[in-house]
């Protein structure tokens, strides 16, 4: 928290000094459409000197400015140490009830680095379950579930803080709507996270994404020119490095045209909790557990057994075989008789 006293101090600093202490403070002025104050002028004096007509045009009230400034500095503060999420050791989902009111009798605790699969027919409540986690339900959603963080009910203010979002979502039908190069795009994201060494982080993300994608792209490739697989690879690399959300939800990664096993490992390596709605045999067996949904509730929780896992080798061989055929098709080759 930025106290009133600290805020008054910040506001009385000359702008040059303020920017030295908090380089991102300049964004406060530009985001409101104001010019950066002169170096020697304090924020307080600057507010007092602003032309009334200019404020009217911008839709701002002079007396609201210092409050806005405090809130902005608090936001910066939170984002900086916002990696509070890093101290998430566990997330517990306390069972509620299904659509018929039958109790779900479980407490499910998940930890960073775990992979959880979600299976079940359409309408069975998979999306609702994810929404419960995202909203940090406290018995106040249709399922009656509650979510605990590190074993305790989270502070209600967490629900709406952008730096404390629990779930990052990597969905199938995502597009880039910005006309930027890959490098500019990742840089922009890193800036909004107030990362210290932006160029290094950006380069690392691009390299990681290139590792995951079949076809290579450069930092100068426009994001809108990326293929579906390349976009997903970029988002997986970006999310694993820049997102502060401890949980990453991925759906339909199977058709993404990327090395899906490595994609999941990338996230696990970065201590994410990976939730996947998938019926892909390889991904499902990679999971530590599968949550089976029926009628709006979790009907069973299956721990992936050694026996099940043993099949993975076979499935991977089959998958590799299909992959070879896919590549052959892509290269215009004929498919001979396969065993």
């Amino acid at each position: 928290m930025v106290t009133d006293k600290e805020n008054a101090e910040l506001m009385s600093l000359p702008t040059a000094e303020l920017l030295r202490l908090a380089p991102f403070a300049g964004d406060f002025f530009s985001s409101l459409g104001l010019e950066l104050p002169d170096e020697g002028v304090s924020t307080a004096d600057y507010f007092a000197s602003l032309d009334a007509e200019l404020l009217e045009d911008l839709g701002l009230e002079r007396q609201s400015l210092s409050g806005r400034f405090t809130a902005f500095m608090e936001l910066l503060e939170n984002l900086k140490c916002g990696a509070d999420n890093a101290c998430i050791e566990s997330i517990t989902i306390r069972g509620g009830h299904d659509k018929s009111g039958r109790a779900e009798e479980f407490d499910l605790t998940v930890k960073p680095g775990e992979v959880i699969c979600i299976v079940g027919p359409t309408g069975s409540g998979k999306s609702r379950f994810l929404a419960d986690i995202e909203w940090m339900a406290q018995g106040d959603t249709p399922t009656g579930r509650s979510i605990l963080i590190n074993g305790a009910a989270p502070d209600p203010s967490r629900r709406f803080s952008i730096e404390h979002k629990l779930v990052a979502q990597l969905s199938q039908n995502m597009n880039f709507v910005m006309d930027l190069t890959v490098e500019e795009f990742i840089t922009m994201h890193a800036e909004s996270r107030m990362v210290d060494d932006i160029p290094t982080v950006t380069a690392a993300i691009i390299e990681l994404a290139n590792d995951l994608a079949g076809e290579k792209f450069t930092p100068q490739t426009p994001v809108t020119a990326l293929s579906g697989g390349q976009s997903r690879a970029l988002m997986i690399a970006d999310t694993s490095c820049l997102s502060t959300s401890p949980i990453v939800l991925i759906d339909e990664i199977e058709n993404a045209g990327i090395d899906r096993k490595r994609a999941v490992h990338t996230l696990v390596d970065k201590r994410k909790i990976v939730l996947m709605a998938t019926h892909d045999p390889i991904l499902a067996l990679m999971g530590d557990r599968r949550l089976v949904f029926k009628n709006g509730g979790i009907a069973t929780i299956i721990d992936t057994s050694q026996e099940e896992r043993a099949n993975l080798v076979r499935f991977e061989e089959m998958d590799a075989m299909l992959g070879t055929v896919r590549n052959a098709l892509r290269n215009g080759e004929l498919i001979g008789k396969m065993c």
Binding site: F72, F185, M235
Partner: peptide, 19 residues
């Protein structure tokens, strides 16, 4: 319809103007 990164940047920008 947008990427996770854009969602995060967008909500950050909203936060900037209305903290």
């Amino acid at each position: 319809i947008v990427s996770q990164a854009e969602r995060e940047v967008f909500s950050y920008r909203v936060r900037q103007v209305n903290a």
